[in-house]
């Protein structure tokens, strides 16, 4: 009865413990380098990486501290950074696209304004001029 009660917990421990022990410094460093490459890519896509950098620096400190426990913590932080990097990249792509759309629309509006000025500019200018000078009186000599 007792064995069946704790069986799921034992199985969970059997699954988790070897994974924790298997984390080596070189593996953690390799994972860190992958996470850094992801963060760099996020930045290239216009994403905000300012929140990810303190985590990467903390992970580096933990990797270099030397204890196995710190390596596990570093691994968790790096995985967290990788997860956040994906969402930051998506929002970066979205904000870059929005920026391009705003610039494109602005250019279209300005281009259309240039065409309108070219076609109707003279008429508009003289219309305004006539309105402004409507009070003028021409006096004969």
């Amino acid at each position: 009865m007792m064995t069946s009660r704790y069986l799921p917990l034992l199985m969970l421990l059997l699954l988790v413990v070897p994974q924790v022990e298997a984390v080596s410094r070189s593996e953690t460093r390799a994972t860190f380098e992958l996470a850094f490459a992801e963060v760099k890519l996020v930045e290239q896509y216009g994403g905000d990486v300012s929140a990810l950098l303190p985590k990467l620096n903390l992970a580096l400190q933990l990797i270099n501290s030397g204890s196995d426990n710190d390596l596990v913590k570093a691994q968790l932080i790096i995985e967290d950074v990788s997860l956040e990097a994906h969402s930051a990249q998506a929002s970066g792509v979205s904000s870059t696209n929005t920026q391009y759309i705003i610039v494109g629309v602005s250019l279209v509006i300005l281009g259309a304004s240039a065409v309108l000025v070219y076609i109707y500019g003279g008429r508009l200018f003289w219309g305004v001029w006539v309105r402004m000078k409507r009070g003028w009186v021409v006096k004969g000599q």
């Binding site: 610039v103 000025v117 500019g121 003289w126």
Partner: peptide, 19 residues
Amino acid sequence: DDEVKFVAIGIILVMMGVV
């Protein structure tokens, strides 16, 4: 009106550059 037109278009081109 030609001069005014070109000045206005010049200003618009500068604005395009700024954007």
